[in-house]
């Protein structure tokens, strides 16, 4: 899985981190750090939930 993250849209609310903490972490300054830009398939459910949860719709899974 590859991720597309629109950092201009992201406001660091952290709902993605709540769904998939292995993949997303909001930093001290409110910016998003992607811990794994190619998450393994086992994480698909979590990553899909993270993308769906984003209030600013900044996250997408790019299908190969």
């Amino acid at each position: 899985m590859r991720l597309a993250i629109d950092y201009d849209k992201c406001t660091g609310l952290g709902l993605c981190e709540a769904e998939a903490p292995e993949v997303f972490e909001v930093q001290d300054d409110g910016t998003l750090l992607c811990l794994d830009e190619n998450p393994s398939e086992e994480l698909r459910a979590e990553v899909e939930a993270a993308c769906a949860s984003c209030p600013t719709e900044a996250l997408r899974i790019l299908e190969d």
Binding site: G14, L15, A18, P21, V26
Partner: peptide
């Protein structure tokens, strides 16, 4: 102003 901690507390 602690955005990196709040979701860990939520968990």
């Amino acid at each position: 102003d602690r955005p990196t901690q709040i979701m860990k507390l939520r968990k």
